[in-house]
Design a protein around this nucleic acid. Sequence first.
DNA 1: CTGAAAGCGCTTACAG
DNA 2: CTGAAAGCGCTTACAG
Lengths: 332, 332
Amino acid sequence: MKAKIADIAKIAGLSVASVSRILNGRGRYSEETAKRVRQIADDIGYYKNRSASDLARQSNNTFGVVYTNSETHFSEPLIKGIMGQAATDKLDVIIMIGKRDDEQGLTKIVQDMIERRVFGLLFLSIQPSQSIIDILNHANIRALVVGSATEHDVSYISSDDFQIGYQATQFLIDKGYQRIGLAGMDVQRDYVGLQRYQGYRQALKEANMKAAEGLVHSGNFSYHSGITAATYYTNEQSVDAVIGASDEVSLGLLNGFHDLGVQVPKQVGLISIDGTELCEQSRPKMTSVTQNFQLMGTRAVREFMALEDSHNKIETVTIPFEIETRNTTKQD
Amino acid sequence: MKAKIADIAKIAGLSVASVSRILNGRGRYSEETAKRVRQIADDIGYYKNRSASDLARQSNNTFGVVYTNSETHFSEPLIKGIMGQAATDKLDVIIMIGKRDDEQGLTKIVQDMIERRVFGLLFLSIQPSQSIIDILNHANIRALVVGSATEHDVSYISSDDFQIGYQATQFLIDKGYQRIGLAGMDVQRDYVGLQRYQGYRQALKEANMKAAEGLVHSGNFSYHSGITAATYYTNEQSVDAVIGASDEVSLGLLNGFHDLGVQVPKQVGLISIDGTELCEQSRPKMTSVTQNFQLMGTRAVREFMALEDSHNKIETVTIPFEIETRNTTKQD
DNA sequence: CTGAAAGCGCTTACAG
DNA sequence: CTGAAAGCGCTTACAG
């Protein structure tokens, strides 16, 4: 039988109410008896029953994060930022993991989170469908997509993907590259892909370069997408340089080119998007558009907190990125 | 105001008890009214309040997993195995993330899990201290370390680390390597490190080779450990081949050697321990002792289930591994 | 500073 | 097949 407040109360010769107040540091009580109560609680191994507490309080201070740890690598800094800020804000976070493109599984997770009455839900590396967003709205639970933009009706915290596409391309053009490929994402159906693609086109246009359709190779942000893109660019469509949609894609490109005897950066330049540790752990190290994922995580929970009182909608937040030159692009 | 059972009951003209039974599929009721009730629940957007439910049932079916996503890479398949099995067993899992070697943070997480009254706790990539284990025992919550062995008083599911050390060494000896290094873990203070080291010594001994102390280079399973080990083996202690304590260590070794102009496998052989996707994503691809992490995850939750009734202690389980030859060792 | 009491939303014997 | 009632362990006005 687990210890409960009543047990403490009996031993201390106090009422349940008083013990509750003391344990929660709420209301008035003498520090003297408080000490005794805490001692007793410790002695009998008391742990608050969260279900009872949450039920009585009719609220709780935990928020949920759902993410998928597949394909992409940037969840780590995101989580780090989130956990850090949650800790300083005395928030609890429970995490659940979903599979990408598993609508049913994701729905189950979301329902679970609703049953737990989390006060907010963060989506990492996942784009919730509109139907899931509707469920959340209906249940009156704030949702926030962090790490990537989305076309659906939720707020998000991410980099400016148009600018990422634009500046990555610009960077390559400035280096003197002519035929610039874009690989590893679906530039038609994926919202992020589309934004970046438009930035890419804009940069090319401003440089009076044509954006040959063949230069874009589709994919799903995975290592494997990079591998197949490398084959494509080697056998079917030559390029001077390519922009990889994620670090995984870029590593795939790097390895794929390597396996085909194409030298990077001597024969083809490469710039990656994300800038996680993978860029430092490849040889050659990869030049990248580095996103500030940790800051996104931090901001995400701050936004939630700011909303505690005001019932405004969460604003969409854009986090700055930077380009880090490493060894997969021409030195100048 | 969130919908509750009473609301449904009123609309349906039933008692709260009946609605509860229907929604949980417990007890007898007519399928006819059941249909009506479910419809109403759906219409008004009802979601069970888990706190109330768990409190009333005095139990719940969620277990917790705590892990750290740092340094090491094998949490992915582990989680995959866990989630898969949890889904088929209709179990809920909540995840919390801790930092390695953050005793205080870990304690907080464990307390949180106790407050939530999880019926079991899995530790991934983390070795809980004895004091944390004591807390858990005291709170009467089953704990299980998965992915690595531990000297503390908890059950665990892992590979046989002595055998890993032994067979990796044996493999290298069979290939004709003479001076065999062991890098990336603390073979004195880390339990896993110690086991593997003993296997390593045993294999050398059986081959009548001496285990020069200088061949072992300490570390913490990280990429960085690999980098420094490569420098060490290049400048201070020559080796024919080295065993990397994890894929991260091995990648560090590979890159470190590369940066120093040492060729793998031409000048030095390398075998990694873990066998995650990293081994396929490096160039050359890394030969590895491949552990079956996904199976460990699956088994972990199965063990929990098996214990539902019987109150036996969880047995320690050993999962088989295999050696996969790739390109960082001599071809024969 | 402390206690009695109501209530949070659900579940579960028990009785019918 | 259905309902009235007690109870899960805590919190929180309210009264003193």
